[in-house]
């Protein structure tokens, strides 16, 4: 029995053998699209939280409550959460693929990445959209000044 060896002609167009969605391509595109958006969003995030006002020393519950009681910042932070976490997770996936040779270890790490990302996406989304800036019974010293009318 002889096996016939077929070679593509040099510089022949790459023929995709697998059908369906090319996930690696969309991952590659996602990194670039989300990257551009994240440059803008994170620059704004750092500017408002660490540069304007008193910077890091102004951040407390009342400061966050003042921001998150505004739908603009709710959706801003939601976009940050989703874009950044998925961007980071896909980057870590690339690194795992680069350095982990063993398929079983790779599988464990990929599962850990997907699981932690799913948990944090659900947690972060719930926090952003169920947040109460003036929780009942809270110390009036610790909440935003606009809570006076409510508490």
């Amino acid at each position: 029995m002889t096996t016939e060896l077929t070679l593509d002609a040099p510089r022949a167009p790459h023929a995709r053998t697998k059908r369906g969605i090319n996930w690696e391509k969309w991952g590659w595109i996602y990194m670039r699209v989300s990257g551009v958006l994240l440059v803008v969003l994170i620059f704004g995030h750092l500017f408002v939280n660490l540069f304007l006002g008193d910077g890091v020393s102004q951040i407390d519950f009342a400061f966050v409550a003042g921001k998150l009681s505004d739908p603009f910042w709710q959706w801003y932070d939601f976009a940050l959460l989703v874009l950044a976490l998925v961007h980071g997770t896909n980057g870590m996936r690339t690194i795992v693929n680069d350095y982990v040779a063993k398929a079983s270890v790779r599988r464990i790490l990929h599962t850990a990445l997907v699981a932690s990302t799913a948990v944090l996406l659900v947690l972060g989304t719930l926090v952003l959209f169920t947040f109460d800036p003036c929780p009942a019974g809270a110390d009036p010293e610790l909440v935003a000044s606009f809570c006076e009318d409510i508490l």
Binding site: V64, A65, L81, L123, V127, T130, A138, D139
Partner: peptide, 13 residues
Amino acid sequence: HILDTALVRVSPE
């Protein structure tokens, strides 16, 4: 950072 911010849902303290 996601976990520390999630504490706003726990209590101001």
